[in-house]
Computed example of a mutant assay.
Amino acid sequence: MELDETMLEEMRKTILPEIKAAAEDALRAHSAAERPGGENFSDNWVLGCACWRILFNRLNTRLEKHSFFKKKVSRNVMEISCPNGDELFAFYVYRVNDDLRIPRGAKSIKVYLEQQLWLSDEIKSSALAQSSGVNIIGYDISIESGLGNITLDRLCASGKNKFESVPLYDFSTPEQMPDSMTKQSEKIAASIVSSTPEEISKPAVNMDNAEEHAKKFNG
């Protein structure tokens, strides 16, 4: 998949700052939860949920009537689209594990991908199915390490409850990760380790007709 440099630059200018700002807010919240004596009962799950919600709120506000990015929100699932050259590029923003780059939550997206495995042979052999999967801007964050890498990946299903992530682009160069974030990560922490609120939300699309969904996501 060819990625237009204009699209990547717009992601750097608009999406990445919101991820970093949400992480900083969550880090501060975690630090503020520390009680006298050093006890802190705000664990990775609590901090992760806070980070997810802050990021959702920030993107929901920043992308309202945005000149480049368009958003579609349904039951706390946000699909973002933008031009990629002459094509339309749709993606989601999720917290992922740091090695495999698989979203921790994103249950509705995973259900959709699993349903692609059961498409008819005719659809599977089409050009639509050959490009099956969804695009994810993924960030990893933990109490121990703070905000880690930010990447653009293609998430696909390889079986029941089995997913693989194909790397498309890595935003996490030293230029994109300022020293302030590194220092902040060393002082305080935040994490999204377990399921996020997204997991209990309904899909952003109606899952009744898998073949139509394939056309929507891949057409």
Rank of each mutant, 00 (worst) to 15 (best):
G85M: 05
N97F: 03
T61K: 15
F68P: 03
S126N: 06
L117S: 09
G105F: 04
D98E: 15
S81F: 04
N76L: 10
E87Y: 05
L55S: 02
P83Y: 13
Y112Q: 10
N97C: 08
Y112E: 09
R62G: 00
I54H: 03
V77E: 12
R62I: 13
P83D: 11
R101E: 14
L100N: 13
N57H: 14
A106W: 03
Y112M: 15
I80S: 01
I123P: 00
A90R: 14
K110N: 12
P83N: 12
N97S: 10
H66V: 03
E122G: 06
L88F: 01
S120D: 13
D98G: 15
G85R: 02
S108M: 02
K107V: 09
G105L: 03
V96A: 12
V77C: 13
V77T: 14
C49E: 12
Q115S: 12
S74H: 13
S74C: 08
P103R: 04
R53E: 12
G48M: 08
I54R: 10
I109Y: 07
I80H: 04
L119P: 00
Y94W: 08
F56Y: 14
I54E: 00
I102M: 11
C49Y: 01
I80F: 03
F89R: 01
K124T: 02
S126T: 07
F69G: 12
G48Q: 05
S67C: 05
L100A: 14
K124R: 14
V77A: 08
C82E: 00
F89A: 06
M78K: 06
K65A: 13
G85Q: 03
F56R: 07
C51Y: 14
S67L: 06
W118L: 05
E122R: 05
A106G: 06
T61Q: 11
L47C: 09
T61L: 09
M78Y: 09
L100H: 14
V96S: 11
R62F: 12
E79F: 06
F69T: 08
S126L: 03
W118I: 01
K72D: 03
S74N: 12
R62P: 02
R62C: 10
E79V: 06
V73S: 14
D99K: 10
V46A: 07
E122C: 02
N76E: 03
Y94A: 07
R75W: 05
K124W: 07
